[in-house]
């Protein structure tokens, strides 16, 4: 009890903490600016603090929900369930950790994949769920990511991935490490087919996820303030034995160092990505049209020589050419006549 409460007469004294409780989840405090935020409003702003623009963490499902158009979504790889190939046990069995994470998140594993559209552009999108064992990548995450890649390869679609992950999942040992190779191979194949891949790195993305699918985007986007790196800051501090500078490994640092293309506010993500995809996939269509035009022109080619005199008329300085010395009349590339 504070000194102020003690001063108050007991009949106006309230039961401190207990009475201050509000219905669960209606109000949230921004960790960055301490503003008290009304939850429905926060959801409308995609869990970005309306006061200070701090980007809070999003579940994978909420992420895709905010990103994709409402209609025409199809979830992929929902039938994939993790196993425990090493019978791994630390202070708890891996099996137990898995079922706890599944129960708490309602997801099978740490990646959600959906086909859909973003502002009417068809895409496949996937998002990591950091709540599920720190978004760690094991066999199911790798296989689900490949479900996304394969759908893109089959239907010539672009891929967008939102990462939030601590890296490879230790409990699946080398199986997890190999998911780095697997997902990177899939992305290499997409690149060969000329299909765009945009990687959106959200807070935090480190380790094996950063060092594979995270950094392989044709375009890498960071969310404001996101921690992105290979080694975590704690490991680096232990290695170099000094305090790391403020802002080290944040999106703003990465864009400065040339590792990512841009930082995009989550509230503008849909528009920015659809513009990028439109530019990336639009060229094919335009080039196709351009090709048709040149083909038409090529068909009309045989006649031009006859119209040589007409060309002379449009050339305003053709007279000058005539007065030039005889030797280099065509050096300028103009008609010699």
């Amino acid at each position: 009890m504070s000194w102020f409460q003690k001063l108050m007469p007991s009949r106006i004294r309230t039961e401190g903490a207990k009475s201050r409780k509000v219905p669960d989840g209606l109000w949230t405090k921004c960790k960055s600016c301490d503003a008290v935020l009304y939850r429905p409003e926060l959801e409308r702003s995609m869990h970005v603090c309306p006061k200070c623009s701090h980007h809070m963490s999003l579940t994978g499902r909420a992420r895709l929900d905010a990103f994709l158009d409402d209609d025409g979504r199809e979830e992929l790889g929902r039938n994939l369930m993790p196993t425990d190939p090493l019978k791994f046990k630390d202070s708890r069995r891996y099996r137990e950790r898995l079922s706890a994470a599944q129960k708490q998140s309602g997801e099978n594993d740490a990646l959600i994949v959906m086909q859909g559209t973003v502002l009417d552009l068809p895409v496949v999108a996937c998002a990591f769920d950091f709540n599920f064992m720190a978004g760690s990548m094991g066999s199911v995450v790798g296989e689900k990511f490949m479900a996304a890649v394969n759908r893109c390869l089959d239907q010539e679609l672009p891929l967008v991935c939102f990462t939030a992950s601590g890296g490879a999942r230790m409990q699946e040992g080398l199986f997890s490490l190999m998911q780095m190779a697997k997902t990177s191979a899939g992305l290499a194949r997409m690149a060969e087919q000329g299909l765009p891949y945009i990687s959106v790195l959200s807070h935090p993305t480190t380790g094996g996820v950063s060092a594979s699918l995270g950094m392989l985007g044709d375009i890498n986007i960071g969310e404001p303030g996101a921690l992105i790196g290979f080694a975590g800051p704690r490991v680096i501090e232990q290695t170099v034995r000094e305090r790391l500078p403020e802002g080290f490994q944040r999106s703003e640092f990465l864009v400065e160092k040339g590792a990512i293309d841009m930082i995009v506010d989550r509230r503008e993500m849909r528009e920015r990505i659809s513009t990028l995809l439109d530019l990336m996939t639009g060229a094919g269509r335009v080039r196709g049209e351009a090709l048709e035009i040149t083909e038409i022109m090529a068909e009309q080619q045989p006649s031009p020589p006859a119209e040589g005199s007409e060309g002379d008329k449009v050339e305003p300085d053709s007279a000058d050419t005539d007065t030039d010395s005889d030797s280099d009349s065509d050096a300028s590339g103009r008609p010699a006549s």
Binding site: M180, A181, S184, A185, A188, S210, G214, M215, F230
Partner: peptide
Amino acid sequence: GQSEAIARNLAVMAR
């Protein structure tokens, strides 16, 4: 860019 360096090798070696 330690992450990018590793990731790039994975993708290139695959193909």
